[in-house]
Design a protein around this nucleic acid. Structure first.
Lengths: 221, 221
DNA sequence: CGCGTCATTGATGTGCATCAAGTGGTGTGG
DNA sequence: CCACACCACTTGATGCACATCAATGACGCG
C-alpha cells in the first residue's frame, strides 16, 4: 500500500520500528494471552495465525507473507487472542503501538494508512466467511490457490508456480476442511490438468479454470 | 465501551455526529459499491450486514444492534463492499470519517477508541471463522444464541428471553447452514428442554446446556 | 539408512443439503 | 369481518459431499 510522505515524515517513520526480531521456523512470534506490545510487519518468511480453544479446536485464521501486518487482534484487550507461528525462518519489524498512535496524530497519512490496514483485514475476513459459509471444497481450494499466487505475484514471484509453506492440515484448517479432502481435491485438479502438484510444489496450468471453479455456485439468481 | 474524556473533549465529540438517519425495516443503510462516507452507530433498531456476490451467493457477515458500529469495511477502498439492511425500523448516527480522523488527532482517547473498535471487529470475525470452520450445526446455533442473548443482556434485556429479528434463512446464512437445518436444530433443542421456541420468540431454559454444546468438540487434546 | 512427518489413496459412515408437503401467522382486499 | 394469498416455519424422505478410519508411500533429517 503506497503512502505519500514528505522526507520529514519519512524520518519520523523510521522511529516507528523499534526493533527487529528473528523467528525460527516453528517458533511463536506471539501467542494467545500474551500482552499486546505492538504490531509486526513481516520482512521475510511466512507465518500462520491461528486460534486454539480450550476444547482443542484449532482454526488457522490467516497466512502472512512479506509486507503484511500481524498483531491487530491484540489492540482491543491489550492481549493477543491468537497464535502467530513462523512456517519458515522469518524476520519481522516490531512497531510499538503507542508509538504508532503518537506518530499517527502527527502524520495524517500514517493515521489513514493504519485505518486502511485494519479495514482491509476486516474485508479479507469477510471473504473468508463467505468461503467458509457457502463454498464447496473445490471452490475453497481454488480460491485459496488464486489468492496465494496473486499475493506472491505482487511480490515479484511467478503467477503460476509456487511452493506451499504450509501442510495440508494447515490448509484444511484455514479452509474448514480435513487434510484428506485437501489432498483429494489437489489430486482432482491434477487429474483435470488444472494444476501440477508434487507435494509442496504447485504449478497452475489453467488459471481461468480455477476462476471458473470459484464462481461455480450453481448460480441461479 | 467506556471512553474517558474531559468536558472539552466531549463537546468536540458532539461535532462528530453530523446527522441522524432513519431507516425503514427492509431498507438499505448502504450497499456494495456505495461511496464510503463515514461510520454509522446504531441508535435504535437492528441490522444485518451481508455480502452478495455476482454469482448469487449471499453471506450474512453480522447482526448489529444499538451501540454497535457499521461501515468499517468501506475504509480501505473508499467504497463499501457489503450491504447493511435494517431488520426493523432503525435510527443511526452518521459520523463522517474525515471528521473522525481529524478529531482522533486531537483527542488520543478517541483515537484509541477507534482502534479498539476495529480490532474488536477483527477478533469477532476470528470467532465466526472458528464457528464456520470447525463447528457442527448444534454448536453453531448454541454459540449464536448465547452471543445474542449476552449482547441483549448487556443492553438491559433479559438473559433468557429474546425475540429474533431475523428469519431462519438469515440465521442460516450467518451460520453457514440451510434454513431447514436451523429450524430442525431449534426443534431438537426444544425437545431436550434446552429452549422454548415459538417462531421468533425464544426462551432459553438451560444456558449451561448451551454452553456445554458449544464446547463439545469431541475434545481429544 | 532408518525413523518421523507429511501426503496420498481407498473404503465406509454420517451430518447436513436437497426436495417436497404441509402448517400457522399475518396482512389485504372483497 | 372473513377469505384468500403470501411468507416464514416445520417436518419428513432421500441423497450426497465431506469426514472418518485405515493402510501405504514419499520426503527429509539426524
Amino acid at each position: 500500500m503506497p503512502v505519500h510522505l514528505s522526507d520529514d515524515d519519512l524520518s519520523k517513520l523510521d522511529a516507528l520500528v523499534a526493533t527487529q526480531r528473528r523467528i525460527k521456523r516453528g517458533a511463536l512470534l506471539y501467542s494467545n494471552g500474551d500482552v499486546f506490545a505492538g504490531l509486526y510487519a513481516v520482512r521475510t518468511g511466512f507465518f500462520k495465525t491461528c486460534l486454539v480453544t480450550e476444547d482443542g479446536r484449532d482454526q488457522v485464521t490467516g497466512f502472512q507473507m512479506a509486507g503484511e501486518i500481524m498483531g491487530l487482534d491484540g489492540i482491543v484487550n491489550d492481549h493477543h487472542t491468537c497464535d502467530a507461528v513462523a512456517l519458515e525462518d522469518a524476520e519481522v519489524c516490531v512497531m510499538p503501538f503507542d508509538r504508532i498512535e503518537e506518530l499517527s496524530r502527527e502524520v495524517p497519512a500514517l493515521q489513514n494508512h493504519v485505518h486502511r490496514i485494519m479495514s482491509r483485514e476486516i474485508v479479507r475476513e469477510h471473504g473468508v466467511m463467505l468461503l467458509l459459509g457457502s463454498m464447496r471444497a473445490e471452490e475453497r481450494l481454488a480460491a485459496f490457490l488464486l489468492n496465494l499466487v496473486q499475493r506472491l505475484h505482487a511480490r515479484g514471484f511467478s503467477q503460476s508456480e509456487l511452493v506451499l509453506r504450509m501442510t495440508r492440515e494447515e490448509i484444511g484448517s484455514y479452509l474448514g476442511l480435513k487434510l484428506e479432502t485437501v489432498s483429494r481435491t489437489f489430486s482432482k485438479f491434477a487429474d483435470e490438468d488444472i494444476v501440477e502438484v508434487k507435494q509442496r510444489y504447485v504449478r497452475i496450468r489453467d488459471t481461468d479454470a480455477l476462476r471458473r471453479i470459484v464462481n461455480s455456485s450453481t448460480a441461479e439468481a
